[in-house]
């Protein structure tokens, strides 16, 4: 295993980038990055053929460290840039990594429309339930009652489920994982990239610095334990009383539907247009 890790590190990390990275010690983003690299390696995608786009925030820095075609865009807009790239060069595998605020607050409109459009992109959304880089303000996924620097009396808004939002908006593949369940996470990312059409992997991740410390989970271990204890596989959820599911969340594949994707459909349009002229 250490040998394998060293090989992956050498193959995929950018050695001309001035490490260390910007993330806090124990941050879940590193685990997501590891999972993403393992998934790409498993899939055997050439580094030249992969585009990794991001928005703004801690997650936004992730592409900087890996040796793909990488793109650090504006806040919330990663999917719009990814859309242009994929349409211009459909042979590329295009992924966008985003945070919860990035993807579903400022980028919420782009997110639901990307899902509706079903263009062949993979959205990796790191959900740490907080705006980390800007200093711990509440995000669309901050749970009711939690503390944040902009909800110091307790949060009075209700969080929404990114995975449910994606599935309702029409994504072809939706899964949720956590940074604790990494073996599963690797598989979910592999499946998501393989899926034609728009795929989403929401990843529950720990920001113990900005979220955990204000909400009685001040270190990575406590937060990992929280993920471990509150994550429920969909098949297990059936055996649990609905009341006790309140503070739980499901992990695994939550939606997987077959529908024509945008690239295929647009090729038909091109064929028709060429036939007409």
């Amino acid at each position: 295993m250490p040998q394998e890790m060293t090989e992956l590190r050498d193959k995929y990390l950018r050695h001309d980038k001035k490490f260390p990275h910007v993330w806090c010690p124990g941050c879940g983003n590193g685990i997501v990055l590891g999972s993403l690299i393992r998934a790409v390696d498993t899939l055997g995608i050439e580094k030249d053929d992969l585009v990794l786009a991001s928005g703004i925030g801690c997650s936004g820095r992730l592409p900087t460290y890996v040796d793909f075609n990488t793109l650090h865009t504006t806040h919330g807009r990663a999917l719009t840039f990814a859309t242009g790239i994929k349409l211009a060069k459909p042979t590329l595998t295009v992924m966008a990594v985003m945070g919860d605020g990035d993807a579903t607050a400022i980028g919420g409109n782009h997110f639901i429309h990307a899902a509706r459009r079903n263009l062949d992109l993979t959205a990796i959304i790191i959900n740490n339930q907080i705006y980390g880089m800007t200093g711990g303000q509440h995000s669309p996924t901050t749970p009711y009652g939690c503390k944040a620097t902009t909800s110091s009396y307790g949060h009075i808004e209700h969080a929404f489920s990114i995975a449910d939002l994606a599935a309702t908006a029409g994504a072809a593949y939706v899964a949720r994982g956590t940074v604790y369940h990494t073996t599963m996470l690797d598989k979910l990312i592999v499946q998501a990239v393989q899926k034609p059409g728009f795929s989403v992997v929401e990843i529950m991740s720990n920001c113990h610095i900005q979220f955990g410390r204000r909400n009685e989970m001040p270190d990575p271990v406590t937060m990992m334990n929280w993920f471990k204890e509150h994550a429920v596989r969909p098949d297990q959820a059936d055996n649990i009383a609905p009341d006790s599911l309140d503070d739980k969340f499901t992990i695994g594949v939550l939606a997987d539907v077959e529908k024509p994707n945008y690239i295929e459909e647009y090729q038909h349009i091109r064929d028709r247009a060429k036939g007409d002229s």
Partner: peptide, 22 residues
């Protein structure tokens, strides 16, 4: 390729993306 995006922010985002792809 033509695409109608969800707003003008997205439109220019997609245009930049396509240009980056050559």
């Amino acid at each position: 390729t033509f695409i109608q995006m969800e707003d003008e922010i997205a439109s220019l985002g997609a245009v930049i993306g396509a240009s980056l792809a050559g």
